[in-house]
Amino acid sequence: MKIVIIDYGAGNIQSIKFAFQRLGYEAVLSSDANEIREADKVIFPGVGEASSAMKKLRESKLDLIIPELRQPVLGICLGMQLMCHSSEEGNTQGLGIFDVDVLKFSNDVKVPQIGWNQINHLKSDLFKGIRENEHIYLVHSFYAPICKETIAQAEYGIVYSAALQKDNFYGTQFHPEKSSDAGEQILRNFLEGI
């Protein structure tokens, strides 16, 4: 199986690469359009600020390539947010794969949300073997509201999308690569069950 992690200068890519290694898979980093297109599974990572990450995607023309992919694609954290229609962060136009606008958490809660929260209302093979209310690790200030593409929910002041799916595109707001055994199971599901 060929796993490509999209390398566009945003994100803690090393951790994702190591997480796959612990599962017995080698993932390669690439920004090459052909290599990404030919992969069996594609990971779209992202940490940091939305508008500058989107700018990097545009500079490398990856903004045109990602929405056209046909194999399973998993966006993580900011990667998932960039797959949405837009983000309030830096008034960013996203890739428009998920039909939802990313918003900032209100000041009724501490921002960023950092730590382990629970996911529930799980509905995807991505969560096979994962119990309702399992703990996963998140770090974020912006969130995708509940929408028709929501496949997992979390609660932080409001109920929001912890994961999204449309066709071959998957996104998790949490970091499966940092979410202990549950996170490793989710990554394994993405590789072996989808």
Partner: peptide, 11 residues
């Protein structure tokens, strides 16, 4: 840091 990241699955 590299060696820790390789082995540890929490932040």
């Amino acid at each position: 840091v590299l060696r820790v990241a390789e082995k540890v699955n929490i932040p």
